[in-house]
Amino acid sequence: MKNIFFKKDSAEIIKRINDLKTDSTALWGSMSVAQMLAHCNVTYEMVYDNIHPKPNGFLKIILKLFVKNGVVNEKPYPRNSRTAPQFIIKDNRDFDIEKERLITYIQRTQELGEKEFEGKESLSFGKLTAKEWNNMFAKHLDHHLTQFGV
């Protein structure tokens, strides 16, 4: 698995993002390429921007017990897997804006590095290791970039 904290790996992910076009089509699923980029941005919004509500205590326990491992392990996501409601993008998005936002988030994460993320609190899963953060970031990006053939 790629390591989002390594400059070489994050540059490779950014190259794949730059290979996307406004008319890139998904090999599976129903999102447009701009919606997919916005969808990928949600993960980073939850880290850097205070725009998503924290799950209540009960929901957080459910997420930790039943969802966390599937998100932070190294096993790839299956095609057409379900997603949390805040990740569903239904409206049209601007491809160039979403692409630039995603690249900026990836660069920021890489520059902050593993030390910044070791033991950092996740909005949904509680404290994660840097490896778990990387798996979550890299696996999600790879899944959706593969979905769009890049």
Rank of each mutant, 00 (worst) to 15 (best):
E118G: 02
P76G: 06
I106H: 04
A138W: 00
P85D: 12
K7V: 10
D142E: 14
I89F: 06
V150H: 05
Q107P: 00
K21D: 10
Y77E: 07
V71I: 15
I14C: 07
K68R: 15
V72P: 05
L112V: 00
P78V: 03
S124A: 14
E116I: 04
S10T: 14
T109Y: 04
N56W: 14
A138T: 09
Y44T: 00
T129K: 04
V33F: 05
E98R: 12
E121I: 09
I103R: 12
H144F: 04
M36K: 09
K127T: 14
F125V: 11
F95V: 08
L141M: 13
M1D: 03
L27M: 13
A84S: 13
I4R: 02
K21I: 11
A138I: 04
H52Y: 13
H143R: 06
T22S: 11
E74F: 01
I17Q: 02
G57V: 03
S124W: 11
P76V: 01
R82E: 12
M31D: 13
I13E: 01
E111R: 10
L141R: 03
L128P: 08
I88S: 13
Q147E: 05
N73T: 02
S32P: 10
E132H: 00
F58Y: 13
D9K: 06
K8V: 14
I103D: 08
G126D: 12
A84W: 06
F137D: 01
S81F: 11
T109S: 03
D19E: 15
Y105N: 04
K139G: 10
Y44G: 11
L27I: 13
Q86R: 12
Q107E: 15
L20D: 04
E121F: 02
G119C: 07
N73V: 02
G119Y: 03
T25C: 08
H39R: 08
D96Q: 13
F137G: 02
R16Y: 10
S24D: 07
T104L: 06
K139S: 06
I13Y: 06
W28F: 14
K15E: 15
T146C: 02
K120I: 00
D91A: 15
K54M: 00
E74Y: 06
E45D: 09
K75W: 01
E12L: 10
N3R: 01
E116N: 13
L20M: 06
E118R: 00
N69R: 14
N80G: 08
Q147T: 02
T25S: 14
F117M: 05
E12R: 08
K7R: 12
T25W: 03
L141P: 01
I61P: 00
T109P: 08
N92L: 01
H52F: 09
G70H: 11
G57W: 09
G119N: 04
C40R: 05
A130G: 09
Y48G: 00
V71W: 02
N73R: 07
N92Q: 14
L20C: 07
K7H: 08
K120R: 15
Q86W: 01
Q147P: 02
D142F: 11
K8Y: 04
G126W: 10
S10G: 02
A11K: 11
S30P: 06
K64L: 11
K127Y: 05
N41S: 10
R108G: 09
K8A: 15
I61D: 01
H140Y: 15
H140R: 10
M46G: 11
D96I: 04
A11N: 15
F5A: 04
L27S: 14
R93S: 03
M1R: 06
